[in-house]
Amino acid sequence: MNKQDIPEELKKKLDQFAVETPDISLKKSLSHRIGSWITAPVKNPADYLSIHITPRRMALFPLVIIVSSLPFAFI
């Protein structure tokens, strides 16, 4: 298969994905990498809590603590 075999319509679409190359140095800078990692966007922790802690789970939380601490009462 050659590039010419690709339909023109599809070629036009593929050409829309242009990539700008940022300034990259040959030397690896650890501080720059750590900086990039720290400043990289992260998920909002509040979103994480809202997904995983439902009202039902919150209601069950004290019960879980009581049940899990029961064995200590017999020590």
């Binding site: 940022p22 990259i24 690896k28 990498r33």
Partner: peptide
């Protein structure tokens, strides 16, 4: 972007 720049250097 970050991963791509790291790959280039590495």
């Amino acid at each position: 972007e970050t991963l791509s720049s790291d790959v280039v250097q590495d």
